[in-house]
Design a protein around this nucleic acid. Structure first.
Length: 197
DNA sequence: CTAGTGATGTAT
DNA sequence: TACATCACTAGC
């Protein structure tokens, strides 16, 4: 079942980031249905968060997406190569977002491996936001796509992830964020992390 | 460890 | 108009 827009309007982006663990993320792109289970997220808390693109109220053509009402995708290019998928949350004017950082593939592995030119055998581990977007076929044109539509959607799992299997840590790759770099805004499923090694 | 890649934001 | 910067990955 797809989540309603109201699911994304909670103002506490940190608890929503945690809540999204275990949810299913689907894309129907290039006639291919692909599905993954969200296993790693990071919260970006709008204008008060030095790691956020919208820190101090920065409002530009790019960040405008984050100021829209929750329930849409915020996709942007990083390091000139990787598309990163974020879920915009909170009401209009509040630029909160959750970065989807990792997932476990479960539907249409063949297509995802093809997109990634995946070489290895075994389970497809999408441990990194760039890999995730590539596997699902997400690019810049999916910026501002509603998350309850027919292209990208998120659905609740039958069983919630147990609190005991969720790990909390600081976020990755944001050394420039000064004291906010140490905030415990990253959440991941412990088993997923373990299988990475 | 390092190269690669290109849109974005800030300064000129 | 220029140029430094960046929520990363793949390949040594």
């Amino acid at each position: 079942m797809k989540e309603n827009p109201s699911f994304y309007l909670h103002e506490n982006v940190v608890s929503l980031a945690q809540e999204l663990l275990g949810y299913n993320l689907y894309t129907y792109i290039d006639q291919q249905l692909c599905g993954v289970t969200i296993a790693e997220t990071e919260a970006y808390a709008g204008i008060t968060d030095k790691a956020s693109h919208a820190y101090a109220g920065r409002y530009t053509k790019r960040t405008a997406t984050m100021y829209r009402a929750g329930g849409i995708a915020y996709v942007y290019l990083c390091y000139g190569i990787h598309y990163l998928l974020n879920v915009v949350t909170a009401g209009p004017g509040i630029p909160h977002a959750v970065l989807i950082r990792g997932a476990m593939a479960h539907t249409n592995l063949a297509e995802m491996k093809r997109r990634m030119k995946y070489k290895k055998e075994g389970p497809l581990l999408l441990n990194g936001p760039g890999k995730l977007s590539k596997a699902l076929g997400i690019t810049r044109i999916h910026n501002e796509t509603p998350l309850d539509g027919d292209t990208i959607w998120i659905s609740q799992p039958s069983a919630a992830v147990e609190a005991s299997s969720i790990a909390i840590d600081k976020r990755i790759g944001i050394g420039y964020a000064a004291e906010d770099a140490g905030l415990p805004y990253r959440f991941y499923i412990k088993d997923y992390w373990k299988s990475k090694h």
